[in-house]
């Protein structure tokens, strides 16, 4: 923990009893206050309100005077197969997507790190996908994968294959939105891991070279252990981002065909803003909050233990 040695010196600089001294003594709290008040207003209050909503039967018809129904919505959530299915899809989306992003990002970072020619150029260009507005990413791929007008199907026919209605086929829709997520966010893994690689000490690699380690052995026994913290942080950040995803899926498939790509975010949105069942939506939101909280707790703990 950081020692605070500054308070006495700065107090001496000011006259005792002046308003500045008073401010100075309370400054740590005063500085935190605006942020605290704003967070209470736009974070704690809405989340608390979600609890209130979830124990009432809020629908579009009972907006003014919703009847109290207790934990009924929460029980409904836990008895709803569409909830479990959406959790499963989210887990697939996050698990497979983040793994692919880590794999491609790491291998690309290794490759670019060894490049002498066009290093900066390649880095700049490889970062572009993560800069694209998520809605535009969705529109972009909807256009490319379109059955009639998309270039992807055109290339398939050129190669002599049958056209595929990718986004409206049950078995292909989820893998394709995972691929779109991977397209956009491999950039992120690439850039963080590349920065990590650049910060590694040279000595370890020289030692490995002297010991006659092969390229793979160096990566396995020198690079990866040294990169452990960077990898964990990137994984945590990407996992959080991936759980949040709404825009691309909403634009690409809207959760369809049927419910084939209905992740928890999409399900919550449908329940609240299409079916106007705010009570159920809120109960689902609370479940999601608790799950994210648990994930954060483990993430923070693993980050602290790595330090």
């Amino acid at each position: 923990m950081r020692q605070n040695k500054m308070m006495p010196t700065s107090n001496r600089a000011l006259g005792k009893g002046s308003i500045l001294t008073w401010l100075d003594e309370r400054i740590r709290i005063l500085l935190l206050m605006p942020a605290f008040i704003i967070m209470v207003l736009i974070f704690c209050y809405p989340v608390g309100y979600t609890f209130y909503l979830s124990v009432h039967d809020w629908t579009f018809f009972t907006l003014t005077d919703p009847p109290f129904i207790g934990l009924q919505h929460l029980l409904n959530v836990f008895q709803d197969t569409s909830f479990y299915m959406s959790m499963f899809r989210t887990a697939m989306y996050v698990g497979v997507g983040v793994f692919l992003q880590l794999f491609f990002g790491f291998t690309l970072a290794l490759a670019v790190n060894r490049m002498k020619l066009g290093h900066g150029m390649a880095t700049t260009l490889l970062v572009l996908p993560m800069m694209v507005t998520p809605v535009v990413v969705g529109l972009m791929w909807k256009f490319i994968l379109d059955y009639n007008f998309g270039i992807f199907n055109y290339i398939l026919t050129l190669l002599g294959f049958e056209k595929l209605a990718i986004l409206s086929t049950n078995s292909l829709a989820l893998p394709s939105i995972i691929m779109v997520d991977t397209w956009q966010w491999t950039s992120f893994m690439f850039i963080t891991l590349l920065a990590g690689l650049k910060s590694l000490p040279n000595e370890a690699f020289e030692a490995a070279k002297i010991d006659g380690a092969t390229g793979w052995q160096t990566i396995r026994h020198v690079t990866i252990p040294l990169m452990k913290r960077v990898i964990i942080v990137s994984l945590v950040l990407r996992t959080a981002g991936s759980i949040k995803v709404f825009d691309q899926i909403f634009v690409l498939t809207g959760g369809g065909p049927g419910t084939a790509t209905e992740t928890t975010s999409i399900l919550l949105h449908r329940k609240a803003f299409v079916d106007f069942d705010f009570g159920y939506g809120s109960a689902l939101a609370i479940v999601l909050t608790v799950i994210v909280g648990i994930i954060c707790w483990f993430a923070i703990r693993s980050l602290y233990s790595e330090k």
């Binding site: 909503l53 949040k244 803003f273 809120s282």
Partner: peptide, 16 residues
Amino acid sequence: FTKMFPPIVLVVPFFV
């Protein structure tokens, strides 16, 4: 936690 928080959870209370 607030940094990682899924915004979809806040949309419903904000709306109401």
